[in-house]
Amino acid sequence: PIMLDLHDKKVLFIGGGFETESKVLRLLEAGALVTLLSPLAHPALEAPPAPERLTWLRRGYQQGDLAGFQLCFAHPPDRSLNTLIAQEAREREVWLNAVDDPAHCDFILPAVHQQGDLLIAISTSGVAPALGVRIRQRLAQEYGPAYAEYLRLLRTFRPLVQQTYPHDFEARKAAWYRLVDSPALEHLAQGEVETARQRLLEALHNQATPEVAL
């Protein structure tokens, strides 16, 4: 498992398949600079978010198109093209994801549940993607919108923890466990933001708070 920072990274998407729109939009959300090869209509991409990050060449794949890229997604209507695309990817040392074609993949994409900065990825190693989706749906019920607010609040505590324990890593680590074990999340789930903040402040300074085993 790996998390890639795609911000300002050049990504080639050889599209036309039914998931082209959704996958290109996710790449744009991640901040990638996407070059799309597809002669077909994709209404959702006619006016995408961050249009300056999308270059759309309205044609299909041609030998040599992977030059200059480190990452490529292949989702052509004719899957037989994946063999040629994968061959060029190997020659140019480009990481390739061929959608629903694990035999031609250097990496696969997990099912993802996201709430703000919380990102949970589930993979069945390509065996049964539908199972990954079902697990993601169950996780979505447990890790709801309160977690997005929780992480926004915890982000504000990063400098406070550093300032409170500037030279003691073990103390900082213990403080973080006190923060995440505090009842702040429960208060956020009830919409009590200021109460949650107060509970985190108490946990930050209360070194006597019981801790979980590390």
Rank of each mutant, 00 (worst) to 15 (best):
Q198A: 15
A213E: 14
E202R: 10
E21R: 04
I14V: 15
P166C: 08
P51I: 11
E194L: 14
G132S: 14
R53Q: 14
K10A: 15
R79G: 11
N97S: 06
F169Y: 12
D78C: 04
I85M: 00
D5M: 09
Q114I: 07
L151P: 11
F69R: 03
P159L: 04
T164H: 10
P43G: 01
P39L: 05
H205D: 01
D8S: 14
Q70Y: 05
L109D: 06
Q137N: 14
P110I: 05
T83D: 11
Q115P: 09
F157L: 04
G116M: 06
L40G: 06
L154K: 08
P76F: 06
V133P: 01
E19I: 03
D100A: 00
P49N: 10
L154T: 04
A103S: 13
L27Q: 03
E29N: 10
V133T: 11
P39Q: 06
G191I: 01
V212Q: 14
N97T: 07
R158I: 12
G126Y: 13
G17E: 03
K10D: 15
L71I: 12
R134S: 11
A146R: 12
L131G: 02
F73M: 05
A128C: 12
R178I: 09
R152C: 11
L153S: 06
P110Q: 06
R59G: 06
H187W: 12
A86F: 03
L81K: 03
A41E: 14
A41V: 11
L36S: 07
G31C: 10
I122M: 02
E170H: 13
D5P: 00
F13N: 05
G60F: 09
L28C: 06
V94E: 08
D181Q: 13
V24T: 05
A175N: 05
Q198I: 09
W56A: 10
Q63P: 04
A44P: 00
P76T: 15
R178M: 09
A50G: 03
E91T: 09
I120C: 05
L71V: 11
F69E: 07
A189Y: 04
D65P: 05
E194D: 15
R26C: 01
A146K: 11
C72R: 02
F107Y: 12
N206L: 10
L185A: 01
L118A: 08
L109V: 14
Y143Q: 08
Q162E: 15
R92W: 03
P48T: 11
E170C: 05
A174F: 05
A32E: 02
A213D: 13
V212N: 13
R59D: 03
D168F: 00
E149C: 12
H104N: 13
F107T: 02
E21F: 08
R138E: 12
G17N: 04
L119Y: 04
Q141P: 00
A74D: 04
P43K: 08
L28A: 10
P39E: 06
Y143I: 07
R90F: 01
D117W: 13
G17W: 02
I108G: 08
